[in-house]
Amino acid sequence: MSQPFVVQFNPVALHLGPVQIHWYGLMYLLSFLGAWMLGEYRRKHGRLPVSREAFGDLAFYAMMGVILGGRIWYMLFYYAGGIRWIWTEPLALFRVWDGGMSFHGGLLGVLVAGLWWSRRHALHFFDTVDFLAPVVPVGLGLGRFGNFINGELWGKPGLMPWAMIFPNAHDEDAALAASNPGLTQLMQQYGGLPRHPSQLYEMVLEGVVMFAVLWLASMKPRPRYLISGLFALMYGCFRFAVEFVRVPDAQLGYLAFGWVTMGQLQSLPLIIVGLLLIGMSRRAPTLALARADSSQSA
């Protein structure tokens, strides 16, 4: 294979005087902005019968759900010290600059926020979820691109034509090469082990593919639960599959059988829920576009 691409970017995107804006933070900002713009477009076209102000509240609550849910879930299931932080260092929950967010927790946070907002506005909960689902992949795709720029969450070694070198994985590369002469030769030849760019796999599957399918499916009359079911099923399947070529979190490793990861374990319920929701959609009413009045469409 030819010389692999080396994933080595400056993590700082912009310098505004003494303030540094990191790429990963910028991806979060672009995610929320993109989701809000697409959500407002969907609202104006009758996908949810609420005013702009009501949608603004939903967007804000969903954003808080992503941040709080994602961080709390990470600390409960992925933090290196286990859950002892609750009584030994509770302030670790707020050290977001150290990294650590979980999609599954963020999703749960959005669902809780959506349930509370739906009850306030007397809307069916799954009408709200069906409305939100097509815009979520924007954040998923940008988040994975941020992981790629940061050179983190890399994949397993491989010799595919598109394999890449991740300098941040040097210590892991060296440990693998120490016990395998063939890998030692690769290390000497390329300066690191070529690896699957698993972040890009997830960016394409969870971002581009999911957005295209959900957006197109939601643009025509469809039964309740279908969009939510497709979202859960696709994400669960895509995440479960990519985990086979992605290195598990170092602090957790494999949980069972030498291949089951925490990401796979937490994605299985999404696959089951997705199938159940799609089944429920077969007997659910087909939703027509809302006809918002002038106050709602402002």
Rank of each mutant, 00 (worst) to 15 (best):
Y190F: 15
Y190P: 06
P90E: 04
R52S: 15
L93W: 05
M187L: 15
I86M: 10
G207F: 02
V242W: 01
M203T: 04
F211G: 08
H124W: 06
G39K: 12
P11R: 02
L26F: 07
L108M: 13
H124M: 11
L107N: 04
V6F: 09
L176Y: 07
I227A: 02
G158R: 08
A241K: 03
F240A: 09
D171T: 14
S294I: 12
F211W: 08
L76T: 08
L205K: 03
I149G: 04
Q8V: 06
R224Y: 03
A256E: 09
I67R: 11
I21E: 06
H121T: 05
E89D: 15
K44I: 03
Q199S: 04
L33I: 14
G69I: 12
Y235A: 05
L153H: 00
V273C: 13
M234K: 07
M64A: 14
Q188V: 04
I227E: 00
I86A: 11
Y41V: 07
S218K: 02
H22K: 15
W23L: 10
V242L: 05
L193F: 08
M37T: 08
L91Y: 10
W154H: 03
M219N: 14
M210T: 01
V7N: 04
F5P: 10
V138Q: 01
I83P: 00
H104P: 03
M1S: 11
S294Q: 14
G106Q: 06
H15E: 14
F166D: 04
R282H: 13
A175K: 14
P194V: 06
L26A: 12
T261K: 03
A284V: 10
L205A: 12
A174W: 10
N10T: 09
P285G: 12
S295H: 15
F126Q: 01
Q189A: 14
G65V: 09
L205V: 10
R222K: 09
N180H: 11
L142W: 00
D57R: 13
W117T: 03
F238P: 06
L30D: 05
T261C: 05
F231K: 05
L142D: 02
G100E: 05
S297D: 12
M219E: 12
M210E: 01
L38T: 00
A212W: 15
Q20L: 12
L16F: 10
T88W: 02
G158E: 11
L115S: 13
H22S: 12
G139R: 02
G34H: 03
A177H: 08
C237M: 14
G155V: 09
M1T: 12
V129Q: 03
Y78I: 11
Y254S: 01
V110E: 07
M210R: 01
W215E: 04
L183T: 08
A35V: 10
A241N: 08
R43Y: 10
L153T: 02
Y24M: 04
D293S: 13
F257D: 06
Y41N: 14
Q20G: 10
V136P: 04
W259G: 03
R120I: 05
G141D: 00
G274N: 02
I271Q: 03
Q8K: 14
F60C: 13
R222C: 08
F231N: 04
M27P: 07
G114Q: 13
W23S: 01
L76C: 11
L107E: 06
W23I: 05
M101N: 02
S179E: 12
